[in-house]
Each structure stands twice: as structure tokens, then as C-alpha cells.
Design a protein around this nucleic acid. Structure first.
Lengths: 212, 212
DNA sequence: AGACAGCTTATTGTATTCAGAATGTCTAAC
DNA sequence: GTTAGACATTCTGAATACAATAAGCTGTCT
């Protein structure tokens, strides 16, 4: 079935749909994703499903073993560490290349305020964290860097999800967000940069230890 | 290493083949890549060709406009700058995370020596430069970082190619390689790191100015 | 003569089909 | 009771077929 305005390539839509399902925990860790099943379930053919799965595999969310199909990659502390250390370098880089606008600072503090009010709502928390970083970096003219950061962040999202499920300390994260916003408001981009990097390293340590 | 049982996914082979063709300049800039033509030419069906083209498009080598197929993205100074600045951050990061082995230093100097002997052989020069970086970073345990660096390097290779075609100064590059190898031999990884970063920034500036 | 409209062709995007391979089961033998 | 082997089912990977859409061309009208 095609929606009235179905101008997006099918593979893209399927990609988003499958990704959301994974993020919502609808796919058991290590569970196989059979393209034929997904195809009938989504009402499309196997071809676009296959495209989406291949893309997800290339992004590291799925593991693709030839002949044995795709399965949801288990949460791997190594992935968290490795991808995290990349992001710990790239997000500060993006911030460095950005011109900090005053309108963004406004919105950032708004997001921080809303973050403080999320009481255990995991989905909202993740969404707000994402929005914070999006606003923080949106002024960066390096589009490729932004895209890369986006994919890397997505691949770590389920770790964050798991962390929060297990009673992760949202408040700590909130505090660090506030500090970064503060530094930016004072025009101290170098400080913001350092805080952002530290936030990553701390966050990774914390999430990793919580995964055990 | 390819598994003993030679079962390489067809899409992968096609990807490599098409990529090589692009790199060798066999595809005119802005030229369309028709999957059907490529399929018959390579003796495979359109499906794996399509996979390869989609992947190349995602990596930025091709532009994919819905309904109009794929075409070779023009050399864009912005891409050089953007991707280059990412690599200028990530390669030093990878070096930082590496344990420098003595065997590697040996091979590095070997590559430098061979680099000095390439007299205008562009392909060999690129290949050696690639090998230098591969050896330099191979001890890095962060596999994801290495993969990412590899992809980004590939997407810049045709810029390097163009640069060398237009009489780019290979020697300068060689000197910087030698310096990095030297620093490593002395065990000064911090210096090597800095040299590597500087090499990137210089290289990008140089290539960019030569593109005009 | 130039421009626009309609048709033709070619190419893309998606679906379906085909072949080979892997997994799981059933049976039989130890 | 356990294990090895063969068979059947299912799934993946690739090829082919089909539908929709954009480009190209020709003819006519202004």
C-alpha cells in the first residue's frame, strides 16, 4: 500500500521502520531478521527490505553473515567504546567548526529545562538528548561531519536506551548538558568543547559499567 | 582476508570494480552510471550492481536523484575540505589509540623508501601512500575507527588522483611521511600525531589550491 | 521558424522467480 | 539412549520480469 505522498524511496522508509522497531526493542537481541517475513509484514517486496538490511548491517546495527542472513548485533561493550571514542572526537570537532548563534543558546536552555522535567520517561529523555545535540551542532557548516555524527549517534542509541532502562542516572547527564549550555552562553566555546568531550568519555564509562 | 572458501558477496565485488573504474577516470565527471549497462558489462544482474551503486551514493561518490539514477558527483572542494577535516581528526585519534610496534616502523621506512623512488607513477604513489597509512594505523584496536578512516580515505582518493595528475608535488608528501616515520622510530608518538594532523591540513590546502 | 504537445523509447524502481545453501527433523543404526 | 546420516523445508542471494516514470523525438500549430 502506498501512502498518498509516497515520494520517498521505499528502501528509505523500510530502513526507518526497521530501525524504529529495533530501537523499541521489538527485535530480540541476536534475533534473526528474515527479509521475507519483513517484506510480507510491511507489504513490500524483499528488494527494498534487503537494501535496508544491508544498510543497517553496514552501520553496525546488524551483523550480516553470508548465507546466514541478518541478525541483531548483540550489545557489545567494544562497540560502545569504539564508536564512543570516535564521537568524543567528532562532536567537539563539529562544535569547533560551528558559529554559536544566540537563538540556539535560547533553545538549548529550553531543552535542558525540559530534560529536567522528564521523570523516567526514557523515550522522551533520549529524544531530548538528541535534540540537544542537534541544536548544538546545527550551525556546523560541515554537512558530512554532521551526517557522520548522526549515524554514529544512532548506532549508540540502543546502548543509551538499555542504560536508561536499567535505572541510568538521567540527572547526571542533565547537569552536563546544562554546563555546556552555560559555557556557550558565556561565549566560551573552548570550554564547551572540552565539556562536550568529557561528557562523552564520562557517559561511555558510565553506560559501560551499567551494562554489566 | 578472504575465507578459504571463495565466497565473496557479488555486490562487494561489483562495488570494488565500479570504484576502481571511477578512480581510474573511466567515468566522466557528471556521467550517468546506468545499472543495466553495467550489469551486462560485468556479466551480472542488475541487483548487485544496484546495491553497489546505492552504497557508493551513500558514501558520497555518486549522487542519486530519484527517478534519474546515479551520476558521478563532481569534484567538490567542499567535500575535500569537509571530509579532510574529519580525517585530520580521526587519523591522529587512531594513531593515539595504537601501540606502536617495532616491526611496523621497519615497514614504514620501507614504504617511504619506495615512495621516494616512484617517478611520476601516480597509481603506485597512491597505493604506497595508502599502504603507509594502513601500516601506521594497523595496530589500532579500534576496528570501527579503522573502517571509518578507510571509507573516508577512499572517498578522497580521486581528489588525490586529480591532484597528482596535475603535477602535484609528490616529494613534499614523501618528506612528511618520512618525518612521521622518524618520530615513531624515536618513540615520540605525540610528535607523530601532530605531524600526521599537520600533514592532513597541509595536504588539503595544497590539493584544494591545485584543483582550481 | 520556433515552441509546444503527444507519442515513443529507454531507464529506473519494485516485484517476483529461480537456484543454491543452511537448518532442522526424522529415521535408523550402534 | 544417543548419534550419524539423509531428506525436507526454509531462507538467502541473484536473476529476471513488470510497472511507472522521465527523457527524447517528431509532428503540428502558431
Amino acid at each position: 500500500m502506498t501512502t498518498s505522498i509516497a515520494r520517498a524511496p521505499l528502501g528509505e522508509q523500510v530502513y526507518l521502520e526497521i530501525f524504529q522497531r529495533i530501537q523499541r526493542g521489538l527485535v530480540p537481541v541476536g534475533g534473526r531478521l528474515k527479509d521475507s517475513a519483513l517484506a510480507t509484514e510491511l507489504g513490500v517486496s524483499r528488494t527494498p527490505v534487503r537494501e535496508a538490511l544491508i544498510r543497517l548491517a553496514r552501520e553496525g546495527v546488524l551483523t550480516a553473515t553470508p548465507g546466514r542472513g541478518f541478525r541483531l548485533a548483540p550489545l557489545d561493550p567494544a562497540e560502545l567504546r569504539e564508536t564512543g571514542s570516535i564521537l568524543a572526537a567528532l562532536e567537539p570537532l563539529a562544535l569547533e567548526q560551528s558559529e554559536p548563534g544566540p537563538a540556539q543558546q535560547e533553545r538549548l536552555t529550553g531543552v535542558v529545562r525540559r530534560l529536567e522535567q522528564t521523570r523516567g520517561d526514557i523515550a522522551a529523555c533520549i529524544e531530548l538528548d538528541d535534540e540537544f545535540h542537534r541544536i548544538l551542532l546545527e550551525a556546523c557548516p560541515n554537512r558530512r561531519l554532521l551526517g557522520l555524527v548522526g549515524t554514529l549517534r544512532r548506532s549508540l542509541r540502543r546502548y543509551l536506551h538499555r542504560y536508561l532502562e536499567r535505572g541510568g542516572r538521567v540527572s547526571l547527564s542533565t547537569l552536563q548538558h546544562a554546563r555546556i549550555a552555560d559555557a556557550l552562553r558565556k561565549g566560551d566555546r573552548a570550554a564547551a568543547r572540552q565539556l562536550l568531550e568529557r561528557k562523552w568519555h564520562r557517559g561511555i564509562d558510565e553506560i559501560e559499567s551499567a551494562l554489566r
